[in-house]
Nucleic acid binder design. Structure first.
Lengths: 339, 339
DNA sequence: ACAATAATATAAAACGTTTTAGCAAAATCA
DNA sequence: TGATTTTGCTAAAACGTTTTATATTATTGT
């Protein structure tokens, strides 16, 4: 447990002031007119003894922690963990570390976590927020902390966001079903007011309305385990024997749905066509493979980190909200094609 | 951007010393004989003005950050993201936050990340380590920092670890294939010296040797994209037309393998039986469903966090290495049963 | 009634940086 | 030459806590 040496120790070794070392380390050697010779001497010693500044002290003094808070709905969800992976990569490349948490879409839990992150003086936030944390997010922003939302956004906040065009992509996916001759298309989704879910719902409804087709909506509430979800889907499908297609609003609803269909012995797509929002390796490998709306995860992460880093660097007082609406891709597979 | 108030501000408001407040906040009121009346007064004011200690200052002074460093091979891998999810939950419950990163099994990258985490004075580590970081891990431990490894361990370190019994579980899975009459069982695994992969290999080999069956080993090197992996598997399977079963050493190898089998038009299990180490929803939903060795993720996370918190609290100088070897469960599905 | 002890609270140092303000010597200018 | 500017560096304050050592008053014991 040997003591790490401090800038003061180093200064003593070199018989100079800590100030000088600090200037050199922070790239102010020129500006502060430290002689090249001394700079060299200091750098050499630093190299030799392996001095590393204590980042806690730095943070305390500067107010910057170089930490980004990443709050996702559920880090175990492949969509979010993939995003986390990409964000991590880009953040580390820029000297930032990531502290993460899963919100469970629970606003109380999220408020708590936000408060914890604030305590730790996180420099900026990337959040897929639940509803109900508008005030906290706005407080953060008013405080000058960059916050950028993704997947869904909070209409009543000034936070930047990066989302996909849920409405159009859902609309087009449903259109694809219609074009394949399906007429009784169900939408199994979450009972949620979050923007992305509402937009998907709108896309579904407008496509059907436009083609004069009947709506079949099943909203499943969020906090249930998989068994329950499957039971709900099974019972819905049993009550609706005339359905010929079903669109799932999220990847895990679709996975539960596939299990439900298996249980019911339904053939895809003969008995029921299937389309899902959000792609997954499960859908690619499934027999038959499942048509899905694939989100541009790489692009989304890139935008997120770029916007965030931009705000972190410039501390730009740009009042205008930055919004990025990306286009997902409909990947048509066997599950939605008429034979 | 209103200034947060400090313990000194609070002290001024109350006309007392910061020391007193600190004592009260750290539960030393009794020990330091602060009068109940004053304690009440302070607590009330804290509540009223919403004072929160600056954790950076606390960390600087105490050396404790209440942050756990979680280093996994790849946070986007469902095995690791599930663990991350559970660890997160338990850590937060105990007041710890989590800072994470993906190592990519790259020892250089990992050393870098370790150094970054040290800079940030992470209190303890949970790591699924690549080989080649033994020295760094031992340095950490010598330094008094709790480190606990999982999934694989580093024989040349004093780090505690939680792993599963890879050898026995693989042995039994292969035995299961043998008992179902399969005689030419391939093992497609990583070209890795990590303990978990070596143990799985041993389990495979001892089962075959014991039953006098031929070995068919394919080792795939780590840093390849999925396309390459699939090509390697395809070519291996083409070169070995007499195989009747294949055991995959990791979940993503199996996923690539399933894609390869699809490409080759092989029927499972008629042409080729399949078993995988590590379960996944893909395997459950696949047609036919895939037999897999399911790791006790919940139990593993529980052990990890319990051991780590134990070491964090007691700063126990227990020299003995704690090792936990859990038993995975073989989930027999359609892909490995003779018709 | 006096010493010893207990009760209550605090001042000041320390953690390791960054940054402001400024000092002394050297160089330039007029 | 004397004043001014530039060069090269540093002392000390600040960030917001915790902790050690100690001061002051009240209580107890004899």
């Amino acid at each position: 447990m040997k003591k790490k040496l401090s800038i003061v120790d180093l200064a003593k070794q070199l018989n100079i002031s800590p100030t000088t070392i600090s200037f050199i380390l922070n790239g102010k050697a020129k500006e502060k007119r430290i002689s090249d010779e001394l700079v060299k001497r200091v750098l050499k010693q630093i190299e030799e003894v392996g001095y590393k500044p204590n980042s806690l002290a730095q943070s305390l003094r500067t107010g910057k922690t170089m930490i980004i808070g990443l709050m996702v709905e559920d880090i175990a969800d492949p969509f979010f963990s993939s995003i986390a992976r990409l964000i991590e990569e880009k953040a580390y490349k820029n000297g930032y570390k990531i502290i993460y948490c899963s919100t469970d879409n629970d606003s109380v839990k999220t408020k708590d976590l936000l408060s914890m992150f604030q305590d730790r003086h996180v420099d900026g936030y990337i959040i897929s927020p639940p509803e109900g944390v508008e005030k906290e997010v706005n407080d953060l922003i008013d405080n000058g902390t960059p916050v950028i939302l993704f997947d869904r956004y909070l209409p009543d906040t000034n936070a930047d966001y990066v989302v996909v065009d849920n409405r159009t992509s859902t609309y087009e996916a449903v259109l694809h079903l219609i074009n394949n001759g399906y007429k009784n298309i169900a939408f199994i989704t979450l009972d949620s007011l979050q923007t992305q879910m509402q937009d998907r719902l709108q896309g579904y409804e407008s496509a059907l309305t436009q083609h004069n087709l009947p709506h079949h909506l099943k909203e499943i509430s969020f906090n249930q385990d998989e068994e329950q979800i499957i039971r709900h889907i099974v019972s819905f499908l049993e009550r609706k024997p005339n359905l010929d297609a079903v669109f799932f609003g999220t990847n895990y609803l679709c996975i539960s749905g596939l299990k439900a269909l298996k249980k019911l012995g339904k053939k895809i797509p003969e008995d029921l066509a299937v389309v899902c929002f959000d792609d997954d390796v499960v859908f690619e490998l499934h027999s038959p493979s499942i048509t899905a709306i694939a989100q541009p995860i790489e692009e989304m992460s890139e935008k997120l980190i770029t916007i965030l880093l931009g705000k972190l660097n410039k501390a730009s007082k740009v009042k205008k909200i930055q919004t990025d609406i990306l286009s997902p891709e409909l990947i048509i597979r066997a599950s939605s094609r008429r034979l």
